[in-house]
Design a protein around this nucleic acid. Structure first.
Lengths: 167, 167
DNA sequence: TATCCTATGTTATATCATAACATGTCAAGA
DNA sequence: TCTTGACATGTTATGATATAACATAGGATA
C-alpha cells in the first residue's frame, strides 16, 4: 500500500517518484496557457516564482522565494515576492498553505481544482489529494447550521509513504 | 432564553442566537473539569484568556487577547498571551484558526473533538461543525496516496445565516 | 507619440510569534 | 521548617511574516 511503484489514481502525483523536470515543464506550459486564456501576463518575475516553487516541490515561505528571486537579479524586497505569489494564487497556479504560512505550486492547474493538501511533517513535501468528497461532507455539515461555504481549506499533516517507512 | 427558534442537531451552537453568558459559564466549568482531570492548572491568566475568547465568540488574534489581559492587570508582553493560548490549545479548550492567525474558544470541549470551522467573512463569528465525515473522506483520499494523516485542519470561509440575509 | 494601465521596484512599517532569561509560587521531601 | 525542584509568570529582545504607500519603468493603443 505504500509501494510507490504501484499504479495509482491519476489525480495526484502525490509522493511517488516521478520525472520532476518533466512535470515542472508541463506545469509551466499549462501556466502559460492559463495566463493567456485569462488575459494575464506571465512576466519574468512571475514565471521565475512559479519555477522556483515547481522545482522545490514543497511549500516555501515568501522570504525563501524572495531570496531566490533576488539571487536571479529581481527585486530584493518582500512585495516583489508577495505580489508574484498573489498573482499566481489568484490564477490557481499556486496554493497557499495556511498552516505553514507558505506557498506551493499547483500540480494540476485547471478549473475548479481545489485539492486537499498533505503535508509531510518529516520531509516537508506537500502533495495534493482529491478533496471533492471531503468538501461535499463539509458543505452538508455546514448547511445544517445555515452556513454557506464559499471557500474551504483542507490541510492534513502526517507522514508521507517514504517517511513512514524510514522516519 | 436559550431559544433557537428551531430544533437542530445538538453538536453545534452554530450561529443561532443563544444565551451566551450561559454557554460561556458551561464552557468554563467544563474547562475546569478537564484541567483537573489532566492535572493541569487553570490559573488566573489562563482562565481569563479563555473567558475573553468565550465572551467574544469569534476568533481573536493573540495581540487582541493580550490587550485584554494587560487591561486586567496581567502581563503586557506577547509571551503572556501566547503561552496561555498554547496551554488552552493543548488541552483542546481553544482552537487555532490557521487561516486567520487567530484563536477561538472551543464550544464543546471534550475528547476527540476536532471540528471543522465555519468563519463568517462578514461578521467574523466562528462556529464549529461536525467534521467526522469530511475527515473520513480526507483520510480515504490520503490513504490512496499512501499518506498517513495525523492531524487535519478544515476551515471554511463563507456567510453565516444572519449575514447571508443582510449582507 | 501621448497617454493610460499595469508591472516592478523602493522605503517604511505593521502584524504575528518565539528565544532567552529573571522572578515568583507552591508543594514534596530532607 | 527549610530546601529544592517544577512550573508559572513576567520581562527584554529579536525573528518571521505581511502590507501600505509611493516612485519609476514598459508596453499597448488611441
Amino acid at each position: 500500500m505504500t509501494d510507490p511503484t504501484q499504479s495509482r489514481p491519476d489525480q495526484t502525483l502525490a509522493f511517488a517518484h516521478h520525472d520532476h523536470s518533466h512535470c515542472t515543464g508541463d506545469a509551466l506550459a499549462q501556466a502559460a496557457t492559463i495566463c493567456t486564456a485569462r488575459g494575464a501576463r506571465l512576466t519574468p518575475v512571475r514565471r521565475r516564482t512559479l519555477e522556483v516553487l515547481l522545482e522545490s516541490h514543497r511549500a516555501m515561505g515568501a522570504y525563501e522565494v524572495l531570496a531566490r528571486l533576488a539571487a536571479d537579479g529581481f527585486g530584493t524586497q518582500p512585495p516583489v515576492a508577495y505580489r508574484a505569489l498573489e498573482f499566481l494564487v489568484d490564477l490557481g497556479l499556486v496554493h497557499r498553505i495556511n498552516r505553514l504560512n507558505a506557498f506551493a505550486a499547483c500540480m494540476q492547474p485547471g478549473p475548479a481544482h481545489n485539492p486537499a493538501f498533505l503535508i509531510c511533517r518529516a520531509c516537508n513535501l506537500v502533495a495534493e489529494a482529491p478533496a471533492a468528497r471531503a468538501r461535499a461532507a463539509l458543505e452538508a455539515s455546514a448547511a445544517a447550521t445555515g452556513f454557506r461555504v464559499e471557500f474551504a481549506s483542507i490541510e492534513a499533516v502526517g507522514l508521507c509513504p517514504a517517511c513512514a517507512v524510514a522516519p
